[in-house]
Computed example of a mutant assay.
Amino acid sequence: MLAAFLDDIRDADLIAPRRLAGRLRLPLTQLAKLARVNRNTMTARPESPAVQAKLGEIARIIARAAELSGDEGKAIIWFRHQPIAGFGKTAEQLVEAGEAAAVLWTLESMDQGVYA
Rank of each mutant, 00 (worst) to 15 (best):
M1S: 07
L2A: 06
L6R: 15
D8N: 15
D8W: 04
I9H: 07
R10M: 11
D11Y: 13
A12N: 12
A12C: 05
R19G: 02
R19P: 01
A21C: 14
A21K: 11
A21T: 11
R23L: 13
R23K: 15
R23P: 00
R25V: 03
L26S: 11
L26Y: 12
L28I: 15
T29F: 07
L31M: 01
A32N: 02
K33E: 15
L34W: 04
L34F: 11
L34K: 03
R36Y: 03
R36C: 02
V37E: 02
N38P: 01
R39F: 10
T41Q: 08
T43P: 01
A44R: 11
A44E: 09
P46C: 04
P46V: 03
E47I: 00
S48R: 10
V51Q: 00
Q52R: 11
K54Y: 09
K54T: 10
R60D: 15
I61R: 05
I61Y: 10
R64F: 14
R64V: 02
A65T: 04
E67Y: 08
G70P: 03
E72C: 07
E72L: 15
E72Y: 08
K74R: 14
I77C: 06
W78T: 04
F79P: 00
Q82E: 13
P83K: 12
P83D: 07
G86W: 05
G86C: 06
K89A: 14
A91G: 03
A91L: 03
A91F: 02
E92G: 01
E92M: 15
L94F: 04
E96Q: 15
G98E: 09
E99K: 14
A100I: 09
A100H: 13
A100D: 08
V103S: 05
V103M: 04
L104G: 02
T106S: 07
T106M: 09
L107S: 00
L107I: 00
E108M: 04
E108F: 00
S109Y: 02
M110V: 03
Q112E: 09
Q112Y: 07
G113E: 07
G113H: 04
V114Q: 09
V114Y: 11
Y115N: 04
Y115L: 13
A116G: 12
A116W: 09
